[in-house]
């Protein structure tokens, strides 16, 4: 599988602080890549660098397998649609006029306007001034602008931010339909785990500028089932016993959290503990929720 976006050591300093640090983003073709992280983690900054709107302090970016530089940047971006932070629009013009501006500048067929208006279901509001649009309608207009050239890659930065639940649902369904319908690869950022969970096929989690997780969503879910919690009459001795036998552990309240293991292995541990006069009083299968993992990875509570 080839990568549509690949960054290497991508970093950005504002003042003396690295707001994005050594990010190696890999977005495979055809994926819906969920770029997840709490507010201020560096999502927008990373996406802006990919679009050439902000200059990386260090690192390389390749889009469609080509290293991006200032010369080929716009040529590359012909196949990229974007919506960064908030939708861009001219409030005093109608939705159709707004799209006409971006369609003309992109040099794509005029009929694309009608088509994208239909895709985002704004065809009945196209003659209304955008200043009279609701936030959800503006957001959909922003998506329509991004879709105008039927790009191979779509970069959507928090496209559901500020929408009501119905609007979020609608936007999600729209985004979800794009890869099959138009063969697009979609990068969508969010600070909401639930959203990425419902939308993405692949996940990158960013925390304080660093990419702390990047793999398939399925893999992330698997993490949540892999733990056992045990409680003994003497956890301190048990800790050193586990360490001696090469079993990773983690203390949590009265429990020791250990990886999921085969029954035979667990039986041996319990036998050995018994021989050392340490009573094993609880063995529980712990299902860490996705939220717990997100919390561990990002150090912030999940906002739902």
């Amino acid at each position: 599988m080839s990568n549509i976006i690949e960054t290497e050591g991508l970093s950005k300093q504002y003042g003396n602080i690295y707001r994005v640090k050594d990010v190696d983003l890999k977005v495979p073709e055809g994926a819906i890549y969920g770029f997840l992280g709490p507010n201020g983690a560096g999502k927008s900054t990373t996406l802006k660098m990919i679009l050439g709107l902000a200059k990386p302090t260090e690192g390389e970016i390749a889009v469609f397998g080509k290293r991006v530089n200032s010369k080929n940047r716009l040529e590359n971006l012909k196949n990229v649609g974007s919506l960064i932070e908030s939708p861009s629009y001219y409030g005093h013009l109608t939705g159709e006029e707004n799209l006409r501006i971006f369609q003309t500048l992109r040099g794509v067929p005029k009929q694309n306007i009608t088509e994208v208006l239909k895709i985002v279901r704004l065809e009945n509001q196209q003659s209304k001034k955008v200043s009279q649009y609701s936030l959800g309608m503006k957001q959909r207009l922003g998506l329509a602008s991004a879709l105008l050239g039927y790009p191979r890659l779509l970069i959507l930065d928090e496209p559901t931010n500020g929408l009501d639940p119905a609007g979020i649902q609608e936007m999600r369904e729209l985004i979800q339909s794009l890869p099959q319908k138009f063969g697009m690869t979609v990068v969508v950022s969010s600070h909401l785990l639930s959203e990425i969970d419902q939308l993405a096929t692949r996940v990158g989690i960013i925390r304080e500028g660093e990419l702390v997780y990047q793999d398939s969503l399925t893999k992330l879910h698997q993490y949540s089932k892999q733990h056992l919690a045990v409680r003994t009459m003497n956890n301190e001795v048990t800790k050193s016993f586990l360490s001696q036998n090469g079993v990773a552990w983690e203390a949590e309240d009265d429990y020791l959290i250990i990886p999921q293991m085969k029954d035979t292995m667990m039986a041996e541990i319990s036998k050995a503990l018994g021989q050392n006069n340490i009573g094993l009083v609880r063995i529980e299968e712990r299902k860490k929720s996705l939220e717990d993992i997100f919390l561990e990875l990002t150090g912030t509570a999940v906002s739902l």
Partner: peptide, 17 residues
Amino acid sequence: DVEHKGQTFKLLETIIP
């Protein structure tokens, strides 16, 4: 002012120099 108000530079600059 319309460009600032609608934050359009970040979209325009991905289309034309």
